[in-house]
Design a protein around this nucleic acid. Structure first.
Length: 952
RNA sequence: GGGAGCUUAGCUCAGCGGUAGAGCAAUGCUUUUACACAGCAUCGGUCGUAGGUUCGAUCCCUACAGCUCCCACCA
């Protein structure tokens, strides 16, 4: 035997229960969704944005996990067949790099250099990477569990597992057959560091300080004779400004604007390529900006996206001078073999020597850096695989336009359109090993390509057996784009797909709108014929307290794990939930988490307070959480709730006769439920959080519990009523809070004497008994019967009286121990009734020794202070003798007078304006008038009191 | 170059047409048997600047300034 109050520790100590609670949920299968909905049941599903399989939990993950878990737990409590599908991403470059680093540490290759993946060979390297994946996979998944995420782990997927690989292959083959995937030689972004192509999105244009070198090109006729300048008769030269002089090796033209009169005489002529001596044509194109630089442009089709377009337009040769290895190719003549940076130096030097460098300017321009490594990415000409996006994008744009997919915050929809309307083909091949190898075989004989669901034995065009598989793998985002349906079993027609596709919501960081969200919409529509999700919720980036991006190099990374360790997962979750506002960046400061830890502690202690009311009650020790606890004898409330186990039903039945404070808190609870419901439903989770915080702390703890102490002490019916209200409200509050703070609410709820076990359809199907958990307890619903405006008004009045006295006490620095009597002049019968009814509460909470009514004309003392209330209509008079220094009190009164005067002047100002009277709405005028009357009365009262004190 | 967002108390942010709000911080008083991870009270703001619309503007409109982000091919 033990007592209820010893059930809970002294204060909130999350470490003592978080892991056990999570384990309990897992053991009981609380997060497992059913492949089929129960009769009449709806489904709700979210697929997780899969974190990098070898990654670590960062604040972005923590935010994502919190927000999605809130939606998931909320819907599960509302009775939906709820699936949150977990999984991880193979993250091509990131993972491969980590394994390469490990290999490099292990030893030296034959040339004495650190080992590379090439020393191991593709097969061995992939084996190593799989092992690395197996070894590290648990790190991130364990960390996700620490956050409390209610994920259905029985359905966990990995982008390279068998099923998903099958889906990837199926998609590739179909798109290839539909001619939506093609292979072509294009200019692409080449990352020398990773030796791979990158998509446009993986290149970050970054401001770099550089130079603008002005090069001089001699203009000649086709036969090499110099062209004379018509004005001067001198040999013509064209000066061209460039930020990348080394690319001149690959120049195949120079261009000027067709209407640029400065250059009319050189149209159709040729330029002598400096240092190289090659003759290249002068072309005209309106793309050239006359204002920039010298008005002349050098054209390097193989190494610049714009020049590539120009090259295509004018059918220029494309000379690849920058090699994939980061060195100048043999096309670069004497510069061959130099690294790009070295070549630039040498070329500038040589230009100077040759007198072809007109001038050098400082210049700031954009350089493409690799998203992954921050190193310069070079545009080069290369054969790659592409997805033709335009036809695929059309239905995806339509889906948003017709409202089938909604974006929140709204502004992201615009960004989505902007990108989708100007979409470019997606380069999907990567020269890596870790990933889905492209299912295409090249024939050595006919050069044909064979693509198929099964590995071919021979070329499908010429039947030659000399075929080799394309070595490239697919962009990681290719498999991610299939995630909403590949994870549910596609291309098989599974029950899970039928039940959970389209998913309900896609929630992720706004930074991967294009990388991921847009592409999922495209793929979902194309392959499922249906949108992949109904709503897109995009959260903002988490930054440090100064608003700076968190980065390892800056050292300002706030790691969620130590915060969980220190304060618990719930406070971290509450912090993130309360800051996930309107789409602006989240500035996270550690002390916020501390603050919400205090909140958790507050709830903890409120629950302990409730337990105190049951103190001494016998309960079974070590109750098995898996079985419903036996009904507990309840000596306190048995007489009242006899036969009725449901506190809510009892309160509803007896609502009319409840004490106003009880009716008040029940009424306020309905408002809280409404706010939470609205917040959760409308992607305003911060508001839902704040509403709960305020209800729990300010209304329930600060006022209701304080009010309840008196009846609890009194015993009898009053006590029973309070206990039941207290229990009911707290129990509802815990259910309301559960989606945001699952651990502490479950721990506390499980300690309650009257908790009811519940069950889920998935568990029922397995024949499992109900279990005591909030995981699928019913989420509170507004009960209109508990709405009570009269009780709320009564409480507002009561609070006004108590606050007025506390205010007086506070401003005069009076100790709460110092009790004094309150003389009250009551203006009407209703007020008189109010004071007599609430006397004990006022005495208790305002620390008053007695309330005495003073009749009209009667004055208690000269030394008294006056506090005027309009609601209830009363004057509180407090005798100052032996209590407060008269001078101090006069100061306070003068302050009040000043304040009231300002308020009054403002109102009078309004009322004195004819235009206001003529045009403002009548209700407002009436209210302003009555306010003015009240303020004038107040002012008179204060002035009279002041006068009296002054006279004494 | 185009676009979006932001600018409210020392800090982080709500409010978005009728006399400015919260939390934290600061200050004072309290160890009152849920909680000092607490209670009560106080201090603190010409709501970025300048115009306009309106009886009335933090809220709507215009311009400007500062910050942030996204997109884009200025060599």
């Amino acid at each position: 035997m033990t007592t209820q109050s010893s059930f809970l520790g002294k204060s909130y100590e999350p470490k003592t229960f978080e892991n056990q609670r999570y384990q309990f949920w897992l053991n009981e299968g609380c997060f497992i969704a059913s492949d089929e909905n129960a009769p009449g049941q709806k489904s709700y599903s979210i697929v997780i944005p899969p974190p990098n399989v070898t990654g670590h939990l960062h604040m972005g993950h923590a935010l994502m996990l919190t927000l999605e878990d809130i939606l998931i737990r909320w819907h599960r409590m509302k009775g939906l067949n709820t699936l949150w599908l977990p999984g991880t991403d193979h993250a091509g470059i990131a993972t491969q790099t980590q394994v390469e680093k490990q290999i490099a540490k292990e030893g030296k290759g034959p040339s004495g250099r650190p080992l590379t993946r090439h020393d191991l060979g593709r097969e061995k390297f992939l084996e190593r990477t799989w092992k690395w994946k197996e070894d590290h996979h648990h790190v991130i998944t364990d960390q996700m569990k620490k956050m409390g995420s209610a994920l259905d782990w029985s359905r966990e997927r990995f982008t390279m597992d068998e099923g998903l690989s099958k889906a990837v292959r199926e998609v590739f083959v179909r798109l290839y057959d539909e001619k939506l995937i093609y292979r072509g030689e294009r200019i692409i972004n080449w990352c020398v560091r990773s030796q791979s192509a990158l998509s446009d999105l993986e290149v970050i244009p970054t401001d770099r300080k550089g130079h603008l070198w002005h090069l001089q090109y001699a203009i000649v006729e086709k036969d090499g004779t110099p062209v004379k300048d018509p004005a001067t008769g001198e040999s013509t030269t064209l000066t061209i400004a460039t930020t990348r002089p080394e690319t001149l090796l690959g120049d195949t033209a120079v261009a000027v604007h067709p209407d640029d009169e400065r250059f009319t005489h050189i149209h159709g002529k040729f330029a002598v390529l400096p240092l190289v001596g090659r003759l290249i044509p002068v072309i005209t194109d309106s793309y050239v900006d006359r204002e920039f630089g010298t008005g002349g442009l050098k054209v390097t089709p193989a190494h610049d996206f714009n020049d590539y377009d120009l090259g295509v337009r004018h059918q220029l040769p494309m000379i690849q001078v920058m090699g994939l290895d980061g060195k100048i190719t043999s096309e670069g003549g004497i510069y061959a073999g130099l690294k790009f940076a070295e070549a630039r130096e040498k070329i500038v030097e040589d230009l100077k020597t040759a007198g072809l460098l007109a001038k050098v300017e400082e210049h700031s321009h954009k350089v493409g850096l690799s998203e992954r490594y921050g190193e310069v990415v070079e545009p080069v000409l290369s054969k790659q695989w592409f997805v033709k996006m335009e036809p695929l994008a059309k239905p995806a744009i339509e889906a948003a336009r017709t409202g089938k997919i909604e974006f929140s915050p709204k502004m992201h929809e615009k960004i989505y359109y902007e990108w989708m309307n100007n979409i470019r083909d997606w380069c999907i091949s990567r020269q890596l090993w870790w990933g889905h190898q492209i299912p295409a075989w090249h024939c050595a004989d006919c050069e044909g390509i064979s693509v198929g669901r099964e590995d071919p034995k021979e070329c499908e065009h010429c039947h030659s057996a000399k075929i080799t598989r394309d070595p490239d793998v697919l962009d990681t985002w290719f498999s991610s784009s299939l995630w909403p349906f590949s994870t549910l079993g596609w291309p098989e027609k599974t029950k899970a797909l039928e039940t959970f596709y389209p998913t309900s919501v896609l929630e992720t960081g706004s930074d991967i709108l294009f990388f991921w969200v847009a592409r999922m919409i495209v793929m979902g529509l194309h392959f499922m014929g249906e949108i992949p999700f109904h709503k897109v919720y995009l959260h903002s980036m988490v930054r440090d307290e100064k608003g700076d991006k968190m980065s390892k190099s800056k050292g300002n990374v706030i790691d969620p794990l130590p915060l969980i360790e220190q304060h618990g997962a719930d406070p971290l979750r509450f912090t993130l939930a309360s800051m996930a506002g309107n789409g602006r960046d989240i500035k996270l400061a550690g002390d916020r988490v501390e603050n919400y830890r205090a909140f958790a502690n507050k709830i903890w202690n409120a629950t302990k307070f409730l337990h105190l009311q049951f103190d001494g009650m016998p309960v079974a020790d070590g109750a098995d959480p898996g079985t419903p606890p036996p009904p507990k004898p309840d000596p306190v409330n048995e007489p009242i709730i006899a036969g009725k186990a449901d506190a809510g039903a009892w309160l509803e039945a007896n609502f009319e006769t409840l004490h106003p404070t009880n009716r008040w808190i029940l009424s306020r609870l309905q408002t809280a439920i409404e706010s939470v419901e609205h917040g959760f439903a409308n992607w305003e989770i911060d508001r839902a959080s704040m509403a709960l915080y305020e209800f729990a702390w300010l209304e329930f703890c600060d006022w209701f519990i304080e009010f309840s102490k008196l009846p609890l002490r009194k015993g009898g019916t009053q006590r029973a009523e309070s206990v039941i209200t207290l229990h009911y409200t707290l129990e509802s509050l815990l259910r309301l809070l559960h989606p945001i703070m699952p651990f502490v609410t479950e721990e506390l709820w499980d300690s309650l004497p009257w908790r009811k076990p519940t069950n889920s359809p998935a568990r029922i199907r397995e024949g499992k008994l109900p279990v005591a958990t909030l995981a699928f307890a019913e989420f509170p619903r507004v009960n209109p019967k508990f709405r009570d405006p009269r009780a709320e008004l009564e409480m507002t009045r009561l609070k006004a009286v108590i606050e007025a006295v506390r205010n007086f006490r506070g401003e005069n620095n009076l100790s709460p121990k110092k009790e004094f009597a309150l003389n009250v002049f009551m203006k009407d019968a209703a007020t008189r009734e109010f004071f007599s009814k609430n006397e004990s509460d006022i005495l208790q909470l305002a620390k008053i020794s007695a309330i005495r009514e003073i009749k009209a004309g009667e004055s208690a003392s000269k030394f008294e202070s006056v506090i005027l209330l309009t609601n209830p209509a009363a004057e509180l008079r407090i005798s100052l003798e032996g209590l407060v220094d008269v001078g101090e009190e006069m100061k306070r009164l003068r302050k009040e007078v000043e304040k009231t005067k300002v308020d009054l002047a403002h109102l009078d100002g309004k009322l004195g304006k004819e235009s206001f009277i003529a045009k403002a709405p009548p209700e407002l005028i009436a209210k302003t008038k009555s306010d003015a009357v009240a303020f004038r009365l107040k002012l008179d009262g204060f002035e009279a009191a002041l006068k009296k004190l002054g006279a004494s």
